[in-house]
Simulated scan of single mutants.
Amino acid sequence: MTSAGRRPETLAQRNFRLIGEAAEIITGWPRVRDRLRAVHVPDAGGRCRGCTSQTRTAPEWPCALAFLARGGAPEDFTHPVRTSHRARLL
């Protein structure tokens, strides 16, 4: 425990906190937010169309950028495919 009596934050807690902070910033950039929302959408297999890589499979939707562009609100992800672990954190 830290000197303040609190446990140090875990990596997952830190990442979740940082995504929330970034989501707050993105809300002030409507053009960036709207572009991320338009590009990071699910394909027929439930993977993100906007996350492309020549060496890896696209992540399951919602990806971190889709989550970020929607303000981190899990209720915004209503697509009927299986959601990723990111959306189940809340």
Rank of each mutant, 00 (worst) to 15 (best):
P42K: 02
R35S: 08
G20A: 12
W29V: 13
F67G: 05
V39F: 03
T52V: 11
A87Y: 05
R86T: 08
T27V: 12
L68G: 03
L36Q: 03
C51R: 07
R17G: 09
A64M: 14
R88T: 10
E75A: 14
R56P: 00
L89N: 02
F67H: 09
L18S: 04
P62G: 01
P80M: 05
E60T: 05
E21W: 10
R88E: 09
E21V: 09
A23H: 03
T52P: 00
G72K: 09
Q13A: 15
W61I: 01
R47T: 13
R37H: 04
N15W: 01
L11V: 08
T55R: 13
A12Y: 06
G50C: 06
P42D: 00
P30R: 09
P59D: 02
D76N: 13
W61E: 11
P62F: 00
A87F: 03
A23I: 03
P42Y: 02
A69C: 13
G50M: 10
A44W: 04
E60H: 07
R47H: 13
A38L: 01
F16V: 10
I26S: 02
V41E: 13
V41M: 15
Q54V: 07
A66Y: 12
A73L: 12
F67W: 11
R49H: 03
V41T: 07
L65I: 04
C51G: 07
P59E: 00
H85V: 08
P74V: 10
G72D: 05
V81W: 04
A22N: 01
A87H: 12
A38Y: 00
T83P: 14
V39C: 09
G72A: 06
Q54F: 04
A69G: 15
T52R: 11
L90A: 13
L36R: 04
R56I: 00
R14D: 15
C51V: 10
G46I: 04
G71S: 02
R56A: 04
R56T: 05
W61G: 03
R82G: 07
T83E: 02
L68F: 09
A58H: 08
R37A: 09
R88L: 08
L36E: 05
H85E: 01
Q54K: 10
T83R: 15
D34H: 12
G72Y: 05
H85R: 06
T83A: 14
L65G: 06
H79Q: 02
A44C: 05
R47C: 13
H79V: 01
H79R: 09
Q54D: 06
L11M: 07
D34F: 10
G50A: 07
R70T: 10
G28S: 10
D34A: 14
R88Q: 02
C48P: 07
G46N: 06
I26F: 05
D43L: 10
T55P: 01
G50Y: 08
Q13E: 15
A44P: 07
D43T: 13
T57P: 02
L65P: 07
F77A: 02
G50L: 05
P59L: 11
G20I: 01
R31G: 02
P62E: 09
I26M: 02
L18W: 03
W29D: 11
F67L: 11
W29A: 14
